[in-house]
């Protein structure tokens, strides 16, 4: 197992909750290793009590997001060679959320804001109704499709400076979700979602700094979605043709 190792890597890992300290570990540096591999190696070989979160290991679930050398990332999709600085990795939990233990944080406020921004789909048809037809090339559908692939990993929420100074701000992911629903002809509460996205702490609080878009691991642009919501203040929700 150690045959491919090429020296040692220094890893500083956050231990504790809000109060805590960095502990330093040395693990074999390998030619091909992700940050999640490193965390797992630390936990299995040196620090069994280290708490962290992961599930799929292949960039599908979004649960392994952490702050690596000051930037939020999916650790499973981040190769060490790409991010280490002078042979050192510094790994912390995501920003802007309460810390539970070590590298795991509590995403409850993040998901609560998702709901607060009107992110719950309201059905307009039941399974007994015929399928609603949506033109995949219509402008609103294209806008929704461009933003729909969010998997709630909270990387954008962690990257957002506005969230860091304004705890009431809904954040990029929740507003991005609201924008997809505002553009969805099958959503029964489009105007309510728009109202919620514009409530106090909503899209008007965004400073368009673009950290969300810069860090989004699936390369979505919450900035663009929020700009769409802002435009709707002037022009109203995007006009949709009634689904056939």
């Amino acid at each position: 197992m150690n045959s491919d190792h090429v020296g040692l890597l220094t890893v500083r890992v956050w231990r504790g909750r809000e109060e805590g300290r960095f502990e330093t570990y040395r693990v074999p540096a390998r030619a091909n290793q992700t940050v999640l591999d490193v965390v797992t190696e630390v936990q299995r070989s040196q620090e069994p009590a280290l708490a962290y979160r992961f599930a799929c290991r292949v960039g599908v679930c979004g649960s392994c997001a952490m702050t690596v050398n000051d930037r939020p990332r999916w650790t499973c999709r981040t190769h060490v060679a790409r991010v280490r600085e002078e042979g050192i990795l510094t790994i912390e939990p995501l920003r802007n959320m309460p810390r539970i233990k070590d590298l795991a944080c509590d995403l409850t406020p993040f998901f609560e804001k998702w709901q607060k921004a009107g992110g719950r789909h309201v059905a307009t048809a039941s399974r007994r109704d015929p399928l609603q037809k949506i033109d995949p090339r219509s402008k609103p559908r294209l806008a929704a499709s461009a933003a729909i692939e969010c998997i709630n990993c909270a990387v954008c929420y962690s990257a957002c400076d506005v969230v860091s100074w304004n705890a009431g701000y809904l954040g990029p992911a929740a507003l991005n979700r609201a924008w997809t629903l505002v553009n969805d002809a099958r959503h029964g509460a489009r105007h309510e979602t728009l109202d919620r996205a514009f409530a106090d702490g909503g899209c008007a609080s965004c400073h368009s700094q673009g950290n969300c878009t810069r860090h989004c691991p699936v390369e979505l642009s919450p900035s663009e979605s929020i700009a769409g919501l802002k435009r709707s203040a002037l022009f109203g929700a995007p006009k949709l043709r009634e689904p056939a």
């Binding site: 109202d195 514009f198 409530a199 106090d200 909503g202 008007a204 802002k230 203040a233 002037l234």
Partner: peptide
């Protein structure tokens, strides 16, 4: 609604 109105007023002004 208030925030939306303020936002709009600031852009229009």
């Amino acid at each position: 609604m208030m925030e939306r109105r303020f936002f709009l007023l600031q852009r229009l002004s």
